[in-house]
Amino acid sequence: MSLFKAFSPAKGDVSSSTAVKSSVQRGMRNKLLEQYPDSLAKDEGVLLEKIWPKKEDITLVKFSREHVSFLVLHGTPLFFQHFDGPYCPTLHLAHQYPFLLPTIRVDRGAIRFILSGANIMAPGLLSAGGQLPEASAALEKDAPVIVTAQGKENALAIGRLKLGTEDIKKAGKGVVVDNLHSLGDDLWLTCAKGGL
């Protein structure tokens, strides 16, 4: 179920909001560059500089209820982190830069379930309208992914693989991707209204 299906900054879910010291910001930037070497680190980090300029201070906003923290620039959440997992871009950022994460595609039948916050089942990825990376570009368990849908232009969710893509193909059934953040969830609406 989407982390942000019942998420509300207005309800007092914020446990802390802290301006991050420059030394800590450098560590966060380095972690993002390590985590996304094929997109953010390309061309000496030019894309990361565009998303989060070095001279701009980031705010770390923590929400206690779901154990989620955000890297926020001028009130706009850029990346979120669940517990100590990888940083994931918000969907707003993923729509601007769709190549930030590897992409998987579900068939048309899965769209309404994902938009209601459901996790992603193997059949939606393995049917004629679904798509997983080729074996040469296989993804490992826990990899964050952008979820697109058959016939749609923009991403509809950010997810995390519960199995590697080759294992998903072998299993053929069951929940295989955790839906972390989807179109229309409360994080999407918060970002659309101007941020945190």
Rank of each mutant, 00 (worst) to 15 (best):
M1Q: 11
S2I: 03
S2N: 08
L3P: 04
F4K: 01
K5R: 13
K5T: 14
A10Q: 11
A10R: 06
K11T: 04
G12V: 06
D13I: 00
D13R: 01
D13A: 04
S15P: 06
S16A: 12
T18W: 01
S22E: 12
S23P: 00
V24A: 10
R26M: 12
M28S: 03
L33M: 10
E34N: 06
Q35D: 05
Q35Y: 05
P37H: 07
P37N: 03
P37S: 04
S39R: 03
L40M: 09
A41V: 05
A41L: 09
D43R: 06
V46G: 04
V46A: 15
L47S: 04
E49D: 14
I51E: 01
I51V: 12
P53W: 07
K55M: 04
L60A: 02
V61H: 00
F63Y: 14
R65E: 00
V68N: 00
L71W: 02
L71M: 12
L73G: 05
H74R: 08
T76S: 07
P77L: 09
P77M: 09
F79Y: 13
F79G: 04
F83K: 08
F83H: 11
D84R: 05
D84T: 05
T90A: 10
L91R: 05
H92A: 13
A94D: 13
A94H: 11
Q96W: 11
P98N: 15
P98V: 12
P98C: 11
L100W: 13
P102Y: 09
R105Q: 15
D107T: 10
I111M: 15
I111L: 15
R112L: 14
F113G: 12
I114Q: 03
S116K: 08
G117F: 15
A118W: 15
A122I: 13
A122R: 09
P123A: 15
G124A: 12
L125D: 10
G129Y: 15
L132W: 00
P133E: 00
S136N: 03
S136W: 00
E140C: 01
A143Y: 01
P144H: 02
V145N: 01
V147Q: 02
A149C: 13
G151T: 13
G151P: 12
L156P: 04
K162E: 15
G164A: 02
T165A: 08
E166D: 10
D167V: 03
K169C: 08
K170L: 14
G172H: 09
G172W: 10
V177S: 02
V177P: 01
V177L: 04
D178M: 01
D178F: 01
N179R: 05
S182R: 05
D185P: 02
D186G: 05
L187W: 04
T190L: 10
T190R: 04
K193Q: 12
